[in-house]
Simulated scan of single mutants.
Amino acid sequence: MTTTPNPAQALQQHAGAAIITGPWPTYSAFRNLPERQRWTLYGSAKAYREALELQGFQMAETYDAFVRRVTEELDL
């Protein structure tokens, strides 16, 4: 996962909730790992997103777009 943090872009306030607009971590560097490890990374990505949401963060990227992006990057 590589990201280039940009604090001015990463969080926006919306009705008292922080909305994370990116940049998003990328997983394409892990595309050549064995399939089992790529599935483990996918599960970790979903768990991390869920943990942020449980803490009250909202993602600008929809869940469907997140799943589509990560599975494409991991070639799953």
Rank of each mutant, 00 (worst) to 15 (best):
W24I: 06
W24N: 09
W24F: 15
W24R: 05
W24L: 09
W24M: 12
W24D: 11
W24E: 11
W24A: 08
P25Q: 05
P25T: 12
P25N: 02
P25A: 15
T26Y: 03
T26G: 14
T26S: 15
Y27S: 12
Y27I: 10
Y27N: 09
Y27T: 07
Y27W: 15
S28A: 15
S28K: 14
S28R: 15
S28G: 13
S28D: 15
A29F: 08
A29Y: 01
A29C: 02
A29L: 11
A29E: 13
A29S: 13
A29P: 02
F30Y: 14
F30D: 08
F30I: 00
R31A: 13
R31P: 00
R31N: 01
R31C: 00
R31V: 08
R31L: 02
R31Y: 00
R31Q: 11
N32W: 01
N32V: 03
N32L: 04
N32R: 08
L33Y: 09
L33E: 07
L33N: 07
L33G: 03
L33A: 09
L33I: 03
L33V: 04
P34R: 02
P34S: 01
P34E: 12
P34A: 12
P34H: 04
P34M: 04
P34T: 08
E35P: 02
E35M: 10
E35V: 14
E35L: 15
E35K: 11
R36H: 13
R36G: 11
R36L: 14
Q37A: 04
Q37C: 01
Q37W: 09
R38Y: 10
R38L: 05
R38V: 04
R38A: 04
R38C: 01
R38S: 07
R38E: 09
W39L: 14
W39Y: 13
W39Q: 14
W39M: 12
T40H: 06
T40D: 14
T40G: 03
L41I: 10
L41D: 03
L41P: 00
L41R: 06
L41T: 04
Y42S: 05
Y42N: 05
Y42A: 09
Y42I: 02
Y42L: 13
G43H: 00
G43T: 00
G43I: 00
S44N: 15
S44L: 06
S44R: 10
S44Y: 07
A45R: 03
K46F: 00
K46S: 05
K46C: 12
K46N: 10
K46I: 07
K46Q: 14
K46A: 09
A47E: 08
A47D: 10
A47H: 02
Y48I: 10
Y48E: 13
Y48H: 10
Y48K: 08
R49M: 04
E50Q: 11
E50C: 00
E50W: 02
E50S: 04
E50D: 11
E50T: 06
E50I: 00
A51G: 06
A51I: 01
A51S: 10
A51K: 05
A51V: 03
A51Y: 05
A51W: 06
A51F: 03
L52D: 03
L52A: 10
L52C: 08
L52H: 05
L52Y: 04
E53D: 07
E53N: 06
E53R: 10
E53W: 00
E53L: 08
E53S: 12
